[in-house]
Design a protein around this nucleic acid. Structure first.
Length: 432
RNA sequence: GGAAGGCUGGCUGAGUGGUCGAAAGCGGCGGUCUUGAAAACCGUUGAUGUGAGAGCAUCCUGGGGUUCGAAUCCCUAGCCUUCCGCCA
């Protein structure tokens, strides 16, 4: 949620920036509503003050065993006042709920280094890393290789749960475990504390990180006997909300958490995209990094976050590039985001494998996560950041496509040999 | 699934309609004493919002209600504990 005060102070700027993120602010409605709330609140406070004093007075009269008619008269007066308070309270409550509802659909504004653009074609490349691998044969896509080796089974995945589900077996399943271990351990090396969290969350929690209310169609939901839970689309949701409605001490910051969880996504609106293979699945696992920091530290932490993501890709020896998302491609809650796109020789394309975002205090306002400032002793909203390091499935795709050999076998990256002590998956799909 | 009990400040815990933002103890902070520390003693000490500040408002798990007035009564949601049943 945006900072209402700042927003009112810089309304033209906010309006322009919201527009670039596809939100058209109704200025008159917004201003009328906010000033109405301010005035009504002040009025309410005064009424409450009067009522408090009047009631205390009646209490004193009762205890002093004052004349009955005098008490009755005071009661009648206060009764009228109490009903005024009640209607005013209700009015304020309704108006505040209305404003909150409006603001919950408002995206975060972007920072000034974010390029303005319509969609992902206008993202800007920051840098390229590592050598692009050379092949003296035509590199294949991961699903061609995987099926040929008999280790990826998309048809049976679909039989079990429909499109966008995969069955992995033997060498692929072993590779998956190795990748999980590698990613988890690398996150620890990068200084993140591991946390294990629920894979389902309540509506309130999903609102805290910004998935709800706007993106309900993108989330899987369970519902039974009136209980409603959402399957997490990323560990960001439960991990960021660990401190929902809490006040931290500044000395606790920064907090760096990582978490390996399954992720569930409806992939609404991506019909027809990446239907082959396991690039875009309804269910996948991912190691996510989440940071909480003081407001002046968020850009330093952002640099550390991207460095952590890069280290993973570097260790695997993959070629990739870092891009800055433009306003049109930037997520709902982020104010700045760098994607890491790994080179997939089978597709002959760079494809997103990690996304590192700075949310500033946008999520913290929704989730009400604050910290006590050391010097001012005031409570401030924390800044939250998160990034993937990495999704298991896409990392496997990158390994399979980049480490493939002419005969269809796949070399095991050195970084994985601790957990998968083999040279390769041979052309028969066996670990040797 | 059935039954009962509970949720109060950093912690323990008192408080069942009136000056209660809340006793007491612990803890914290400051001081006396001491070469220093401990002990003892004295004082002080809840939070949030808003405001330059005095202040004002709100807060006893969340939400709603009754009342002039609610930590206290009623309804409701959540969580915790115990007992019984069932189960990986």
């Amino acid at each position: 949620m945006l900072d209402l005060k700042k927003m009112l102070e810089n309304l033209p700027e906010y309006k322009e920036k919201l527009k670039n993120k596809k939100f058209d602010l109704d200025e008159k409605y917004f201003l009328d509503l906010t000033s109405d709330i301010q005035n009504s609140k002040k009025e309410l406070q005064e009424l409450q003050s009067k009522l408090n004093k009047g009631s205390a007075n009646i209490g004193a009269l009762v205890q002093a065993k004052a004349d009955n008619s005098e008490i009755e008269k005071a009661k009648a007066e206060m009764s009228a006042l109490a009903s005024d308070v009640k209607t005013r309270e209700e009015y304020v409550r309704n108006k505040e709920a209305e404003l909150k509802n409006y603001m919950m659909y408002m995206p975060n504004i972007y920072d000034d280094t974010t390029p303005i653009g319509k969609d992902d074609t206008e993202n800007t490349v920051v840098a390229y890393y590592n050598e692009k691998p050379k092949f003296d044969f035509e590199p294949k896509e991961h699903y061609v290789l995987g099926e040929k080796l008999g280790i990826l089974d998309f048809e049976r995945g679909a039989k079990l749960a429909g499109a966008r589900f995969t069955v992995m077996k033997a060498a692929a399943s072993r590779l998956e475990m190795a990748v999980k271990n590698f990613l988890f351990e690398t996150a620890l090396e990068n200084g993140f504390t591991p946390v294990s969290v629920p894979f389902m969350v309540t509506r309130n929690i999903a609102e805290g990180t910004g998935q709800l209310p706007k993106f309900e169609d993108d989330m899987f939901k369970t519902s039974n006997e009136g209980k409603e839970l959402f399957l997490i689309p990323t560990a960001e949701v439960p991990v960021t909300n660990i401190f929902n409605n809490e006040i931290l001490d500044e000395s606790d910051l920064p907090i760096n958490y990582c978490s390996l969880t399954p992720c569930f996504r409806v992939e609404a609106g991506s019909a027809g995209r990446d239907v082959k293979g396991m690039f875009r699945q309804h269910q996948f696992e991912k190691v996510e990094m989440v940071k909480f920091c003081a407001k002046d530290e968020s850009w330093n932490e952002f640099a550390r976050l991207t460095a952590s993501a890069r280290r993973v890709l570097d260790k695997l020896g993959l070629h990739y590039r870092e891009v800055t998302l433009c306003t049109g491609d930037l997520g709902f809650g982020a104010c700045h985001c760098h994607d890491f796109e790994v080179w997939l020789p089978g597709q002959n394309k760079y494809r997103e494998i990690s996304s590192c975002s700075n949310y500033l205090d946008f999520q913290a306002r929704r989730a009400n996560i604050r910290y006590r400032d050391k010097t001012t002793k005031k409570n401030e909203f924390v800044c939250t950041l998160n990034g993937s390091a990495m999704p298991i499935g896409r990392t496997m795709i990158a390994i399979i496509e980049n480490y493939q050999q002419a005969d269809g076998s796949i070399r095991i990256p050195d970084a994985l040999k601790k957990w998968l002590p083999y040279e390769k998956i041979n052309a028969e799909g066996e670990l040797v």
